[in-house]
């Protein structure tokens, strides 16, 4: 049985994202966790390229890897200061949680059984033109709401993290 190039790419991205996700969840070292998150977020950008959504992929790298992941690392460095040894990440309720996770997996997979036959279309490239037409056309309410949300989040972050004036 021969595997086509496209399938190979698919499974490479899948392997990278699963590896990153498993590192985030199972490692005991907080820096490794952040790096696993980095691998995972980059692989999500890889998924977007795989589905021809290049703009989304670039935005993913910009916002997540360049923004959110740096914030995560920043928070780690501020909270777990270096020097006093590496804090170990601990887990609890592992058995119950595995059961919950597997149950959710089985439930949703069985619910999505009929989707498989519909996966036939070649993805159309999500070009900047198409995205702007969508965002300023049918998705305009979402777009405006996101602007308000971002402003609210910005204000909230400033108030929460800087609001200690004694």
């Amino acid at each position: 049985m021969s595997i086509s190039m496209i399938e190979l790419v698919f499974w490479m991205i899948a392997a990278a994202s699963l590896l990153g996700a498993l590192t985030v969840v199972f490692t005991r070292d907080v820096t490794r966790m952040a790096l696993g998150l980095g691998v995972f977020l980059l692989s999500v950008a890889g998924w977007f390229v795989y589905f021809s959504q290049t703009f989304l992929a670039a935005a993913q790298v910009f916002v997540y890897v360049g923004g959110v992941l740096v914030l995560v690392l920043f928070a780690i460095m501020l909270v777990h200061r270096s020097g006093a040894g590496r804090p170990a990440l601990e887990s609890r309720h592992t058995i119950d949680s595995i059961m919950v996770a597997v149950a959710v997996f089985v439930l949703v997979v069985s619910a999505l059984q009929d989707v498989g036959s519909a996966l036939t279309v070649t993805p159309l490239p999500g070009s900047p033109d198409a995205i702007s037409a969508a965002l300023l056309g049918p998705m305009l309410p979402h777009f405006e709401a996101l602007g308000v949300l971002l402003l609210a989040a910005l204000a909230a972050v400033i108030v929460i993290s800087g609001g200690e004036r004694s």
């Binding site: 703009f55 670039a58 790298v61 910009f62 890897v65 360049g66 780690i76 460095m77 070009s127």
Partner: peptide, 23 residues
């Protein structure tokens, strides 16, 4: 088609490297 964004987005990954080196 997203080259301008690519040029801005990709170098931002190197911040991770700087934090990794420092930490």
């Amino acid at each position: 088609s997203v080259g301008m964004l690519f040029f801005l987005a990709v170098p931002s990954v190197s911040v991770i490297g700087i934090l990794m080196a420092g930490w």
